[in-house]
Design a protein around this nucleic acid. Structure first.
Length: 241
DNA sequence: CCAGACGTTGTT
DNA sequence: GTCTGG
DNA sequence: CCAGACGTTGTT
DNA sequence: GTCTGG
């Protein structure tokens, strides 16, 4: 599962994905704050608070095919068919085992895929004595590109765009600690993942391969990350013994 | 036909 | 136990 | 994801 | 919007 992560600042995202330098206006302009946003070290899923929307890269709605845009979306996918702007069921993660059939995810899987940039993410190891937080990140130190889905909801003039991270079984290296994790896409798969002309669910699903054991490094972190009110780069720092 | 779910993790 | 807020 | 609330009347 | 259960 992936319910807490570290989001890079805007400059880091723009330098990797070459977004945000477009001259022509696009939908992204309505989904971005006026000032560049900072890194956030303890991002949690939430419905209904635009201040906590997360940066997402997707294929631009206008412009050349393959052009990308950076937008901020709610991390809790609100299906286009939902009657209300808040839903009772959980959609901040989509299980890879169900994503092609699930009512909330099957259309986004075909036509509305996106990437969530991350410096890393947190998982909790369940022990009889309590839950211990771990931080996972690219072994190279580069940004991760989580495979994600987005949707567009509109009722009575209100528009909400939202997203969900796809999760699958943990790789062998992390399985002893926690049994689920998100999918980090390499550069080649990112391009295919964002390509809206690719709509065959089987071909899309083939892009979701387990993270190689040597691609993801991890370490224990302190307990302060468990409270989502706590912020700061120290939350992802290795725990001192 | 209509009503109700639509999701995840981790459970007695 | 279950829902909401962060 | 985890932490924290879970309620009412009547109010500075 | 679409599927399942009754």
């Amino acid at each position: 599962m992936c319910g807490r992560y570290v989001s890079p600042d805007q400059a880091a995202i723009e330098s990797i994905w070459h977004v945000g330098r477009q001259n022509q206006p696009s939908l992204a302009d309505d989904l971005m704050p006026p000032a560049p946003f900072p890194a956030r070290y303890n991002v949690a899923p939430q419905q209904g608070n635009p201040a906590n929307y997360i940066p997402v890269v997707r294929e631009a709605s206008r412009g050349e095919p393959g052009e990308r845009e950076l937008v901020r979306l709610q991390w809790w996918l609100l299906p286009f068919w939902a009657k209300e702007s808040r839903i009772k069921f959980s959609t901040f993660n989509a299980r890879v085992e169900n994503v092609a059939n699930a009512a909330s995810f099957r259309e986004p899987l075909k036509r509305r895929r996106c990437i969530v940039p991350a410096l890393g993410w947190y998982e909790w190891q369940e022990l009889p004595t309590g839950n211990l937080p771990w931080f996972l990140h690219a072994a190279t130190g580069e940004l991760l590109a989580f495979a994600a889905l987005w949707d567009h909801w509109e009722r009575d003039g209100q528009v909400i765009e939202s997203c969900s991270l796809i999760v699958g079984p943990a790789n062998d290296a992390f399985m002893p600690i926690h049994d689920r994790m998100p999918f980090a896409l390499d550069e080649e798969r990112q391009a295919q993942w964002l390509d809206r002309s690719l709509t065959d669910p089987r071909r899309v699903m083939a892009l979701l391969q387990p993270n190689p054991d040597d691609a993801i490094a991890f370490h224990r972190v302190g307990p302060r990350v468990s409270n989502a009110r706590n912020q700061g780069p120290e939350l992802m720092a290795p725990l001192q013994e």
